[in-house]
Amino acid sequence: MMKNITDADEAGIDVSAPVVSRHSVTVTASADTVWRILTDIDAWTTWLPEILYARVETAGQLAPGSVFRWSAAGMDIESTIVQVRPQERLVWRGYGDGPDGVLGVHVWALTPAGDGVEVSTEESFAGPPVDADPALFQEGLDATLASWLERLKRTAEAATVS
């Protein structure tokens, strides 16, 4: 059973998972700009070079139940959107390499901060591959989330200048 990070109305990571990572950065750009970049999943490969492909498979705007497929860290991933609060919060969960692979739950949160927005991200990993080597997955997830935040910051701030 997935445990939420906050109350029952708030989708969250599995805080009891063997691997949990949390990072944040302040971005000098509007929440609208950050949100547009973050939720344009089909364009992730333009600012996240380690993602080989990313595509939304469900027609229409992102909403709970929307499915997207992507590839990262050598895994083919199918994710499902769990929660969408535009310009505030995006949550998805999915399996890397199928149901016997890595179950990731990912939360992005945007909070107004001075001239921009504080972007926080947290993710939990569980599943047999994670159980076999949690330290390796922890190191990889920490590095990945920190890198993604820095790239999101750079991309959003460049979009604000241009």
Rank of each mutant, 00 (worst) to 15 (best):
D40N: 14
Q138F: 03
I37G: 11
F137P: 09
V27P: 02
D133Y: 06
G94H: 04
I51V: 14
V84G: 14
R151F: 08
A29C: 05
I41E: 12
V161S: 11
Q87H: 03
S120Q: 10
V84M: 11
E57M: 13
G65K: 10
R154D: 09
V20Q: 13
T28P: 00
I77F: 07
A135Q: 14
S30Y: 00
G60Y: 12
Q138P: 00
V15G: 11
L110C: 03
I37P: 08
W70A: 02
W92Q: 06
R93W: 02
W108H: 13
L48Q: 14
E78L: 00
V107G: 09
A73G: 08
M75H: 08
L136D: 10
M1I: 05
T6Y: 12
A31I: 00
S124Q: 04
D97T: 01
A126D: 15
E88Q: 12
W35S: 07
T28H: 08
L141F: 07
P64K: 13
V56M: 11
V105R: 15
T45Y: 08
V34K: 11
S120W: 02
G74T: 03
S147A: 07
D115K: 11
S147N: 10
E150M: 06
V15M: 10
P134D: 08
G12S: 05
T28N: 14
D14Q: 07
G96F: 02
V107Q: 13
I13M: 06
S16F: 12
T45K: 15
L62H: 12
S71C: 08
Q138H: 12
G101S: 08
N4C: 07
S124R: 02
A17T: 03
V130Y: 12
L90T: 01
A11V: 00
P134S: 09
V34F: 06
T46E: 15
K153Q: 15
A159E: 08
D133C: 13
R151P: 02
Q87K: 01
E10L: 05
R85P: 00
V84Y: 05
M1V: 10
I5T: 09
A54S: 15
G116W: 01
A29Q: 07
S147F: 03
V19S: 10
G65W: 10
T144H: 11
P86L: 04
Q87L: 02
D40W: 05
V20Y: 07
L62F: 08
D42S: 13
V82I: 11
G114H: 01
E88K: 11
G94Y: 02
A54L: 12
T155H: 03
I81G: 01
G60W: 07
D131S: 12
G101M: 06
E50C: 07
W148A: 12
D76M: 02
V27T: 02
F137G: 05
V20H: 10
K3Y: 06
T80W: 05
D133I: 12
V117H: 02
Q61L: 10
A17Y: 01
T111H: 14
